[in-house]
Design a protein around this nucleic acid. Structure first.
Lengths: 154, 154
DNA sequence: AAAAATATGTTGCATTTACAACAATATTAT
DNA sequence: ATAATATTGTTGTAAATGCAACATATTTTT
């Protein structure tokens, strides 16, 4: 009955999940230690908005891979903190909520990027820059492949 | 003020988080479609128990990178379903709850492994086996590195 | 033209998850 | 020896997350 050959710990799923989990823990600890005004998720959203000026909520949700409800709440918080502005506009003749980053948002983003830079370097540790690039490269390829397999309803 | 160079989407964190997120969505959809009796998390725990006979709860939590509370609840569910047995034992003179997989658990594990095999292959899609190995290899190295940087309290 | 389907955002709820506090026991420090 | 600290598991609680339902408006179908 113990004929199993493949184990979860040998799967690419395991490596992905555990590595991402570790990365998340590290990021949380980092944001906590640096006493930043926003959460990691808010930072991710803010950065994504900064390079997608005028994006609407649903499109942002698709980029973040979060559902519309969650995305809306993150944006609500970012708006309250004055890092983004939201305004009604149209997209394909439909009313949508578009957004843009504020001057304060840019300052915050730059501040965070400066603050976390050193830590980010620390995560790669003994790995050579080449290896780090390799991780990102193969991951991206794998991710692009996954995107074609998974049906995402956002 | 728009002097930012590094963006979240260019970071290894982004690739990791998004890829893991996609993988999670896919796995959930898969478990749902196959109408399996256990959740992905329970499957992961069950498999880990199967290759770590007699492990105690806290050590399992460390392997799963989940907190003790969450781990205990997953095990509670697995025990109720008859896939594992739990028993009191000692480790370093301390009372601990150890566990083992049951015959029914092995059968379930084999069943799941067989059922999901085809889908797992699908996730790698157009990537060559070499590339898949490469993903796992570099990820593992990166993960091992992270483990030394992050302080985990479980 | 009317009905059905789609797109977008919000609200409510139920599940998941993490964190802290606790209980019980053992080890270490004073 | 007594107090402080550490280990292990459980319980309670608050936050995060996702899903379904809803409201509104537009497009497509019949």
């Amino acid at each position: 009955m113990k004929s199993k050959i493949l184990h979860y710990t040998d799967s690419i799923n395991y490596e992905l999940e555990q590595t991402a989990r570790l990365m998340k823990i590290l990021t949380l600890q980092l944001f906590d230690r640096l006493q930043l005004d926003i959460t990691p998720d808010e930072y991710f959203a803010l950065d994504t908005v900064s390079i997608n000026a005028g994006i609407c909520q649903r499109d942002l949700a698709k980029l973040l891979l979060k559902d519309r409800a969650n995305t809306g709440r993150i944006l609500e918080s970012l708006e309250q903190k004055g890092f983004i502005t939201r305004f009604i506009d149209t997209k394909n003749n439909r009313l949508v909520k578009k957004m843009g980053i504020t001057e304060k948002g840019y300052i915050e983003l730059d501040l965070i990027n400066i603050k976390i830079q050193g830590y980010i370097d620390g995560t790669t540790g003994k790995l050579s820059p080449k290896e780090v690039d390799k991780v990102q490269e193969v991951l991206k390829k794998f991710r692009k492949n996954l995107e074609q397999v998974v049906e995402i309803n956002i």
